[in-house]
Amino acid sequence: MPQLPGLLKGLGVTARTAARTLFPKRGLRTLIPAPQQGSVTVQYPHEKEAPPDRARGVIALHEENCTACMLCSRSCPDWCIYIEGHKVKAPPRRAGGAVRSVNVVDRFDIDYALCMYCGICVEVCPFDALFWSPEYEYSEPHIADLLHDRIRLSEWMETVPAFEDYEPGSEQKVRKVPDFGPDDFLPERKLADDDAVLAPAADAATSADG
């Protein structure tokens, strides 16, 4: 029976684990059972688990960066991202430049009943609008309530951890968006809500529509 020592050792392993779980205390208090301290599990509803910063809990939307380009929606294997947007005219970036046409997001929904957390949408977004958040408490009693809209997705942006530097050698990935500087960088959404600001572009807009 060459297997016998291994079999006995296996019994020892389980017995030792049970003993360590049940009697974790040392010294005189060894015989006081305290499995609450001995076990390695987190008693979730009673105590919160602290997920790692880069945990893939939920996908958050940084709405100001979104251009409704649909890349995420089209690359999603489950087709669980629903985007609707419309075009508005924006003032030129530089004085004397042409009036620009930009996209504004009307609807950005992710159906977390379908999402399989592959993260392709986060990878594919060229404008840094989608981020992984470690947040995990968003279950719902009804499956239809798992369709979360842009308001909810934006709220999760607060839980996205601060950006960490990539490891050396991958610098080319770090900036996916050309740096326009803080003032220039996509203030379109606010502009779109305020028609008065669009006044210089109004003529061009009508001619384009006509």
Binding site: T14, A15, T17, A18, T21, L22, P35, G38, T41, Q43
Partner: peptide, 13 residues
């Protein structure tokens, strides 16, 4: 219970 302890869990609580 015993199975839980052998797997370093608590079992039903």
């Amino acid at each position: 219970k015993m199975m839980a302890f052998m797997q370093s869990r608590l079992g039903p609580q």
